[in-house]
Structure formats: structure tokens, C-alpha cells
Write a protein that binds this DNA or RNA. Structure first.
Length: 497
RNA sequence: GAGCCAGUAGCUCAGCUGGUAGAGCAGCGGCCUUUUAAGCCGUUGGUCCUGGGUUCGAAUCCCAGCUGGCUCACCA
């Protein structure tokens, strides 16, 4: 290592000294009896008993013949009292040479100190792993009942690049990721309870489809062929519906070769699910119940706090046709879906449109500008123009529209669903329309997938499908304004060395 | 892609209209058996993001670049 930082050097010297004293600074295991939070919460029954705890030293108050320190484990922190007479001179001296960041294991008696803090009074102590790089440790103080943190590790670049450090020193960060995990667990439980089968489909695809986005391209050497990282898994899951699996879902990492901002990361997580013999009305009911379930599991309440708003996820949510929504929020009637007229309206509304946009895309632009940000409480935007939804089934009664919905929460779309198009003749036509848009310059228009068409030519039952952006859902449930704060390792440019 | 802001010790930051680079914490040495931002005494530590320029002299002013943040644009 070319890092000649003095702090690192000092710790390496300490390492060397430990070896010379016959102490292995990297032993193999430690038998822990309790986690920190348990010792505190079960103090009543544990008082006076011996426990074994382990964790990372996070704060230390050393004195001549007795010391205090706090160790941190996955659940929290606990104070240790280490007296020379209890652990012996050798161990005590070894302890005094330890640093913040080192892992230790301690056996001792559970007692309260003079100030009433539940602590473990050590009878033995061993080093479990020596840290040779100093942590950017913050200091905390209770002031007027509030926790004040000094010198907190706040540099966003460093926090994202060295998330492992961020997690150690910023407890809120850990909490957000635990919540993210609970969200996924709650969804999985809910789906499994409703007879869904969790499946896996290809990430490397010869034809990318199922969404409108530019892909990452790669190459298979042995077959000498181009492959794409999936932008969605929709078309594969529908193939499984064709194959007779009536309810399937997949938590999928998808990849889109587009801009990065606080709502977009090049790789992100979606859950997609498909249900045979159901339509989008059924799916809307299902989404309401699913979100309510997640909120109750994660927050214990259907009311959540997001960006200064209280959002109530209790069903039912309003269902608002997109054209109606535009009329309500702009006063303009766009129901004719005539491209020329739409361009004129877009102009009047100062919405930028480009020549390659068709009618559906223009509607989407107006919606995104004037309506979406205002929909804070959960709302289903439904019945989109057919052109912007090439995989959705024609509306049963409204010409030019499809049976589609997007749940909007907190001013952001967090999912997309439809009554799936299962008419192979219509599907082929839609793909052909997409190819024409592509020729017009729309790089995100979808590509005709002959094998997918073959699959639905064999016959696909009526099906409802749904995709939910897990990252955006996690942002919502953890009240984070940037996708980076719900991704452990958000995409960054490479570190210059 | 555009605008604004930032980059100084391991961390958090100060450093004015240019004149020998600082503080707190962390570290190191010493004292200390109920501390909790422990305390007291002493002390080490710098590619001031990089490269040019102006100047007798640049952390400071100018230009370019790098990295990041925020906002906007783009984005199913």
C-alpha cells in the first residue's frame, strides 16, 4: 500500500507489536450470547448475569486503571466498563493500545453504572480484528434531551464511494437500508401469500424490450454476437404466462443507458408481476392492498411522511383518466388525440416537443409538466393513448386508448400496469407502429420481437401485468429525496488515482 | 447538456482587500478506577484538487481542467 498516512503507519506498528506479544489480531470467531440492544432491553432479567457481546469500538474513555468504551454491533451500541483488576494487567494494557474501529469481544456482567447506563463490566476481553485505517468518527452529545452530533461524516462523495464507512458512522443510513430490505420482504410475503411464483429470467437478451429506453450493449465472445442488458423483463414473464404459470413475479435489476440524476441510476430494481385471467381493474385493487400492506409492515401505519407531506396510502385511491387529468389541470381538451392539435396545445402550454414525438408522447409531456408533480396523494392515472403503450390491451370502450394505469405518489410515477395485450395480430401491428416511430428518430421506440410474437400466437390468457420501481418506492417509504440514498453503491465516475 | 456552489490535516471547518498554513476532534507521549464530545499537561501531522498565468511573492487573483453537490433539461 502506498498510503503513507501517518495514522495508518502508527496502526501498522501496533499490529506488529501485537504479533510480537503473541496476540493474533485476526482470530477466527467469537461466541456472542447477546446483541447490544437485547442487553439493554432485557436488563431486568440480565442484571448481574454474565453475557458475551462483540462489536466495533466507536467511542472510548481511557483512564489509568479503568476505562469505558462503547461498541457497536448490528443493532446498536452498548457501553463496556473495563477495569484493570477485573481483566488483568496484560489485557488492560492491550486494551489501552486499541483504537476506535477495532473489533472486540467481551465477556462480563450486566450492571448499571453510577449514571444509570446499562453496561457490561468486563471480566475478559479479546481483540477480534484490528483496524488500521481511521474511521471518520463523529462525536455525539445529549444536549437538552436532543442528540447533537459533532464533526459528522457528511462529504457526499466520500459517503457514496465508501459506503461501508458511511454505514458504520451514520446510523440513519443503515436504517434506510434496513427499511428497503423490509419493503422487499413485505412484498415478497404478500405475493407468495397470493399464490405467485418467484422466477428468474435472462439479464442478457438478444433483443431488448418491454420498455422504452436505450440499452447497454455487450458482446458474447464464443457466439460472436451482440447482447443487451435487459431494460425490462416484461416480455419474458409473459412468455411464462403463455407457458402456463398463472402468477409470476421477478425482482429484477434492469439497466438503462440514460442520464443520471436523483431519480435515475443506470441500474435499478423493478418488481414485475403478471396474473392470468385478471385485468387492470383487478390490478389496481391489488396495488392498493399491496402498498397498504407494505406501509403497515414497515411503518406500522398507512400514513407516511414524504418531502414535507403526509401521504395516506389507505385504499381506495382515486382513478383519474389521463386525458381528464390534463383537462382538469390545464383547462385544455386533448381528447381528440390529433397530433397537429396536440402540438398547438403544447405550444400554448410552453411544453417543449420535438418533431419525432407522436400524439401519445406529446400527451405524456404535457402530463409530466402540468399534472404529475401535483399528484401528491396516491392516484391511479389510467387509460393512456394507445400509441404510448404498445404492449397494453385496447380499452374495452374508449377508442384510441388502452387499459393502463400508473400509480402516482408524491408527484412521481412509481409503477406501470396494464391489461396485457394478448391479441397477436394487434401486437404485431403495434410493434410495426413502434418501428415506424423508430425510423422517425425515436431511439426509445420498441423493437419488434418475433419470438415474443410467436409465443402469444400460441395463445396467452387474459392477463394483468404490473411493474413497480423498487428504488422509488424505497425513497418514498424512507423519505429520501435522492435515489442514491436508497442504493448502497450508486453509480459514480471512477476515482482518479 | 446548462447554471450555481464546493474541493485546505484522518474528520468537521476557519484562513479578510495577495506577505512564513490554523482550530477543534482524532493520533502520539505522560497523569488519571464511574466516564460518556471524559479531563489535565505536552506533541506529531499539509501535493491548500490538478495544470497554466499574473506578481518580488498565490491557499487567496485570472484561465483551463478534474471530482462532487444542488437546480434545471433529458428520462415510461
Amino acid at each position: 500500500m502506498e498510503d503513507v498516512n501517518q495514522l495508518v503507519k502508527v496502526r501498522k506498528e501496533k499490529l506488529q507489536q501485537l504479533y510480537e506479544e503473541g496476540i493474533n489480531p485476526y482470530p477466527y470467531s467469537f461466541e456472542r450470547s447477546h446483541q447490544s440492544a437485547e442487553v439493554v432491553s432485557r436488563f431486568g432479567e440480565l442484571e448481574g448475569r454474565e453475557v458475551a457481546v462483540s462489536g466495533r469500538i466507536m467511542a472510548v474513555r481511557k483512564m489509568g486503571k479503568a476505562s469505558f468504551c462503547h461498541i457497536q454491533d448490528m443493532q446498536g451500541r452498548i457501553q463496556l466498563y473495563i477495569a484493570r483488576d477485573a481483566v488483568g494487567v496484560e489485557v488492560y494494557n492491550m486494551f489501552k493500545g486499541l483504537d476506535i474501529g477495532d473489533f472486540i469481544g467481551v465477556r462480563g456482567t450486566v450492571k448499571k453504572t453510577k449514571t444509570g447506563e446499562v453496561s457490561v463490566f468486563a471480566v475478559s476481553l479479546e481483540l477480534l480484528s484490528k483496524s488500521i485505517r481511521p474511521l471518520p468518527i463523529a462525536k455525539e452529545k445529549i444536549e437538552d434531551g436532543k442528540k447533537v452530533v459533532y464533526d459528522q461524516f457528511v462529504d457526499k462523495e466520500l459517503r457514496y464511494r465508501q459506503r461501508y464507512v458511511d454505514l458504520v458512522v451514520n446510523p440513519d443510513v443503515k436504517e434506510a437500508f434496513v427499511k428497503r430490505s423490509k419493503i422487499i420482504t413485505a412484498m415478497r410475503d404478500f405475493l407468495n401469500k397470493h399464490d405467485f411464483l418467484e422466477v428468474e429470467t435472462p439479464v442478457l437478451q438478444p433483443i431488448y424490450g418491454g420498455a422504452a429506453a436505450r440499452p447497454f450493449k455487450t458482446h458474447h465472445n464464443a457466439l460472436d454476437m451482440t447482447l443487451y442488458l435487459r431494460i425490462a423483463n416484461e416480455l419474458y414473464l409473459k412468455r411464462l404466462i403463455v407457458g402456463g404459470f398463472d402468477r409470476v413475479y421477478e425482482f429484477a435489476k434492469d439497466f438503462r443507458n440514460e442520464g443520471i440524476d436523483r431519480f435515475h441510476n443506470p441500474e435499478f430494481t423493478q418488481v414485475e408481476l403478471y396474473v392470468a385471467y385478471k385485468d387492470y381493474n383487478w390490478m389496481m385493487d391489488f396495488v392498493e392492498r399491496l402498498f397498504n400492506h407494505i406501509a403497515l409492515e414497515v411503518h406500522g401505519s398507512a400514513k407516511i411522511e414524504y418531502a414535507g407531506h403526509e401521504i395516506d396510502l389507505t385504499p381506495p385511491w382515486p382513478r383519474l383518466p389521463i386525458l381528464e387529468a390534463i383537462r382538469q389541470y390545464t383547462g385544455k381538451d386533448v381528447s381528440s388525440l390529433d397530433e397537429g392539435e396536440l402540438r398547438k396545445i403544447a405550444g400554448e402550454l410552453n411544453v417543449e416537443v420535438t418533431p419525432d414525438m407522436g400524439a401519445g408522447k406529446i400527451v405524456d409531456e404535457i402530463f409530466g409538466e402540468y399534472v404529475e408533480p401535483k399528484l401528491i396523494q396516491p392516484t391511479f392515472i389510467i387509460d393512456h393513448p394507445v400509441e404510448m403503450s404498445p404492449l397494453a390491451k385496447k380499452h374495452r370502450s374508449k377508442p384510441g386508448l388502452v387499459e393502463r394505469f400508473e400509480p402516482i405518489i408524491g408527484g412521481k410515477e412509481i409503477g406501470n400496469a396494464f391489461s396485457e395485450l394478448n391479441d397477436p395480430i394487434d401486437q404485431r401491428r403495434r410493434f410495426e407502429d413502434q418501428m415506424r416511430l423508430r425510423d422517425r428518430g425515436d431511439e426509445e421506440a420498441q423493437i419488434l420481437d418475433e419470438d415474443f410474437l410467436r409465443a402469444i400466437e400460441y395463445g396467452m390468457p387474459p392477463t394483468a401485468g404490473l411493474g413497480i420501481g423498487i428504488d422509488r418506492l424505497a425513497m418514498l417509504m424512507t423519505n429520501q429525496s435522492s435515489i442514491r440514498d436508497v442504493l448502497f453503491f450508486p453509480h459514480m465516475r471512477p476515482e482518479s488515482k
